[in-house]
Nucleic acid binder design. Structure first.
Length: 556
DNA sequence: TATACCGTAA
DNA sequence: TTCCTTACGGTATA
């Protein structure tokens, strides 16, 4: 037993010692099957969850590898019962299989009679099952393929879906690498390949790693009509542009199905909003799914997939489904539905791996802690609970820190990002920097973006528009002054804004300005979890270290 | 017929 | 838990 960086505990938590020389290595090995729970300075706590183990299993890892990682990096002997539990949990995935039976249609096959007996007695599952054909095979009502998988996952017996797919209406699609002189990156190729051989599921890649190209590669494999679901119209148009540029598809073959237009073409791009729209309680775009014999459905930004789309997806189980996302984490905890209905994780590449290959820029993440003034602390302490976060997040004490940080990176393209308009307006005013918010007309946004790209303006203050607008120019410095409570994916997206490789190979700087000893600090910690899991280390510094020695002032 | 504006839901 | 943004679709306007 070497003095490794991990302490594996029988309650399935794993402690990682950050200062240990092997900590980065161990983190990388641990991440595929454990979720980061807490990340204070010296010791991070991970939890081994069943879903993470099943995702690892579906992505091709076996129990032996997981056990090896735990044993190899452990400081103390790993509790034997935990290792047994890991192996047993992983073995649960695939013990039940959904397959096509030539005589009976969809059937559930079990390699364990006891499991079959157990689930047949389950109240929610029993009605979806038909007659039992033999000792280990039971008929499943064809329309319950998705619902059954959801319920089986909930009771801890996730089924492997090998029932296959309809081909859908054929449509020629090829990647056009000739004229544009480009090639799929290795990881994009591998992601598309793993998806295709797995049948359906999710590909996880960092912001800016070219997920659209994985979608295009999947379409080129399917060579069939494709429905692409996106979060907003701007992103839909981006998809269309990329597909026209990178594939044999022409503009006429790609339809936009949104509030504005209702085109249905061999490749159709629809917004989540338009398909979840209801009149008198009835979904009105249901015909979109039936109007064509789709061979492939692509879900962009799976972590934002709205609940009704899960319901519709339950009925689409015979179509190939590809989910794309930067993070499997959902703030609403529906990761299990993604697993059951879209499919398990087929491929992921940690941000740090893509960084090492040079496709995204390295980033220096810094949390700057400011101390509230006596007055601010008093207001904070006596505030109503629903106002407390806003008060500490928008503390005026943050302003000089932001100013100083901008000065330190003078000339570098810098974004100041926040969630509260009052705060942003004030920052814009005192720093003399333009502010872009929801109410900023498109014309003006474009003008400012253009000036920012050209270097005429080196700093912009942006609101939550930064979460949506994909036209926002690349920057090399971001200063975050407030966020949407503890949203991890918002943090990831904000960092993602900085990660386009810099032409001089330089690194990006990501600052989070946080009020010490307040809710702001708690939420900041929660937000950082995802990126910490990806191997980003936040340095914590004091605001005074940024501001430098101050001359004593008279009358303060 | 095209565009602007507004209220609502998420 | 709030604040903020967006898309949709109806109505008004030319």
């Amino acid at each position: 037993m070497s003095g490794g960086p991990l302490i594996v505990q029988s309650d399935k938590t794993v402690l990682l010692e950050i200062d240990h020389p092997q900590s980065a290595e161990a983190r990388g090995a641990l991440a595929p099957f454990a979720e980061l729970e807490r990340a204070p300075e010296h010791v991070h706590t991970y939890r081994i969850t069943p879903l993470a183990l099943w995702n690892a299993r579906a992505a091709g890892h076996d129990a032996e590898q997981v056990v090896d990682v735990l044993v190899q990096y452990a400081r103390f002997p790993v509790p034997q019962p935990l290792l047994v539990d890991v192996a047993e949990t992983m073995a649960r995935y695939g013990r039940l299989q959904l397959v096509k039976n030539p005589a009976h249609g969809l059937v559930l096959v079990s390699f364990d009679k006891a499991v079959l007996a157990e689930i047949k007695r389950h109240k929610k599952i029993a009605p979806m099952l038909g007659e039992q054909i033999d000792d280990d095979t039971v008929i499943v009502h064809g329309s319950e393929r998705g619902h059954l998988k959801q319920e089986l996952l909930k009771v801890g017996w996730p089924a492997e879906d090998l029932a296959g797919y309809v081909d859908g209406e054929a449509h020629p699609i090829d990647l056009s690498t000739e004229e544009e002189k480009w090639a799929l990156r290795d990881y994009q190729e591998m992601a598309a390949e793993s998806f295709w051989s797995g049948g359906s599921g999710v590909v996880v890649l960092p912001c800016g790693a070219g997920k659209t190209m994985v979608g295009a590669a999947a379409m080129a494999k399917a060579k069939a009509t494709t429905l692409i679901l996106v979060t907003n119209t701007v992103s839909g148009r981006q998809w269309k542009r990329e597909l026209v540029r990178r594939t044999s598809l022409t503009e006429d073959e790609i339809g936009e199905y949104s509030g504005e237009k209702k085109e249905i073409r061999p490749v159709t791009i629809a917004t989540y909003q338009v398909i979840t729209r209801k009149t008198k309680g009835v979904y009105r775009a249901l015909d979109l799914f039936d109007s064509r014999d789709w061979g492939l459905v692509i879900y962009d930004e799976v972590h934002l997939l709205p609940a009704p789309v899960f319901r519709m997806t339950a009925d689409l189980q015979s179509r190939r489904r590809l989910g794309l996302t930067a993070t499997l984490v959902r703030e609403d905890g529906r990761e299990g539905d993604v697993f059951s209905l879209i499919g398990p994780k087929r491929y992921d590449a940690p941000w740090k791996d893509i960084e090492a290959q040079g496709w995204i820029a390295p980033a220096d993440c810094v949390e700057v802690r400011v101390t509230l003034t006596e007055n601010e602390r008093m207001i904070y302490a006596t505030a109503e609970p629903d106002e407390r976060y806003k008060i500490c997040a928008t503390a005026k004490t943050k302003i000089p820190v932001v100013r100083k940080l901008i000065e330190q990176h003078a000339g570098a393209p810098t974004l100041v990002i926040g969630a509260y308009l009052d705060q942003l307006d004030e920052l814009g005013e005192t720093l003399d920097v333009p502010v872009i918010q929801g109410s900023t007309p498109n014309k003006e946004r474009e003008k400012l973006f253009e000036q920012f790209r050209e270097g005429e303006i080196s700093c912009l203050v942006v609101s939550k528009v930064a979460n949506f607008s994909i036209d926002l120019p690349e920057a090399s410095v971001a200063i975050q002054v407030s966020g949407t409570f503890g949203s991890r994916q918002e943090e990831a997206q904000r960092l993602g804004r900085l990660l386009r490789p810099k032409h001089d190979g330089g690194q990006a700087h990501f600052y989070s300005v946080v009020s010490r000893d307040t809710l702001d600090a708690d939420y900041a910690q929660h937000r950082q979890r995802f990126l910490t899991e990806q191997g980003y280390a936040y340095r914590i510094i004091d605001a005074d270290d940024v501001l430098g020695p101050e001359l004593p002032q008279i009358g303060e």
